[in-house]
Write a protein that binds this DNA or RNA. Structure first.
Lengths: 229, 229
DNA sequence: TCACTTACTGACTGGAAGTCATTTTTAAGA
DNA sequence: TCTTAAAAATGACTTCCAGTCAGTAAGTGA
């Protein structure tokens, strides 16, 4: 009598198949240009069916977002399991974020879209949005923990409040990453092109700079990265 | 025979009146919810007329963006005229940016939208987009100049490449500002709420942190801001 | 085989962006 | 002041797409 279970599983599979199709269509032509009709076709279903699995187009896009968010967080959580000093953990988190965005610019686009959504109502009611939110909260606690570890092992100056420092680092990393992303996706950034900046080194430059501020007086003597401005 | 001039002036005024109306409508209900019909009504014109002045809805939004961009840049340019050390200039630019976003979150939203636009074609053809681009380039040169000044007056470590440092600072400031903005506009950021972080101090914390990395060895002894983590 | 439930369909509706033939306004010349 | 050509404005119309829903098909258990 495993019918119930099988059905639930099939339903989940179908849901995933729809998200797969949606990713293909939306990632290739952008959210605006993608139509529900086309996504349905790609999934070999009719448009109406899509609405049995997702409230609306945005809800479907949020599901894509959730996938990306889960993927990113699974990478973050792996870092914490390794044996690293606090400052190394911070560097690894930043690099992981950067790598993720390089590998999955489309997911990052989805994150940005999601973060720009005004309609709070819609977000509150979206399960996917809740998951993303929770993932972010979790990622932030990873960061705080990494800082605390660093303050204990002496690689990070413990005169800072770890939470506040985490928010600052997080925000900066996001800014750097966004810049990188925009550059990568050919986002009309003549500014950078003209300046002949190697964006790949942006983050290590950032770490180098910020590392001096975060480091303990002893740690400050040695450079944190190999980068040279 | 100043008819020609008068007409050109009136045309410009009408164009501005449309942008005014568009700002009212779009800022109050968001780009998606705002309709060209409603904007036309607010401007006491018919919908068709809007299309005599703007190619499409996006083009109109870009014009709003251009306004914001010009406003921001005029503030930046004022800073450079004052008598300040390099490091002070950097701080002032960051604070100016932050203040601007606080005062005009809607313009900042427009910036974000504009930066996320995929359609390069559309951007190339938009005069407004070109102006925004140019403003950004200009702002970046202000930053580079401020850094060069600081390297000469000894307030900033001159072992950095000013251009690369400028990009890093710019990116970070943007990240911090974005975080601030999202917080301010109630952007579903439980994460921060729970952490009980005073976002107002984010930027000064950032400067405090980064200031140590940028400062010359002598300068490093004195704190750059009054903030304490 | 039948009755019932669940899954799916696609024609239809509503609403908004963008177009364009027509009308109204303006202003230079007679 | 009147005429007329150009400029400006209009709004009905077309197109497109998200989202709906009455109807159909497939699956299930008796």
């Amino acid at each position: 009598m495993g019918t119930e279970e099988r059905k639930a599983r099939e339903k989940e599979q179908r849901r995933n198949a729809i998200i797969d199709a949606a990713e293909k269509v939306i990632f290739s032509k952008g959210l605006e240009q993608a139509t529900m009709e086309e996504i349905a076709e790609k999934a070999e279903l009719s448009k109406g069916t899509l609405y049995l699995y997702f409230k609306n187009k945005n809800d479907l896009y949020m599901a894509i977002c959730e996938r990306g968010s889960n993927l990113l967080n699974s990478r973050f959580s792996k870092i914490l399991t390794g044996d690293h000093t606090g400052i190394e953990l911070i560097r690894l988190m930043g690099e992981t974020y950067l790598d993720f965005v390089r590998q999955h610019p489309d997911y990052f686009n989805a994150f940005m879209y999601y973060e720009n959504l005004k309609n709070t109502e819609e977000l509150e009611n979206s399960e996917a949005a809740q998951v993303c939110e929770e993932n972010r909260r979790e990622a932030m606690t990873y960061m705080v923990r990494a800082l605390q570890i660093g303050m204990q092992d002496g690689t990070i100056d413990d005169s800072y409040d770890p939470k506040e420092l985490a928010v600052v680092l997080w925000s900066c990393t996001r800014g750097i990453t966004t810049m990188n992303h925009m550059r990568q996706t050919g986002h009309h950034f003549k500014m950078l092109d003209e300046m002949d900046i190697e964006t790949g080194s942006l983050f290590s430059n950032f770490l180098d700079l910020v590392g001096k501020g975060m480091a303990t007086p002893e740690g400050r003597k040695e450079k944190m990265t190999d980068s040279h401005f």
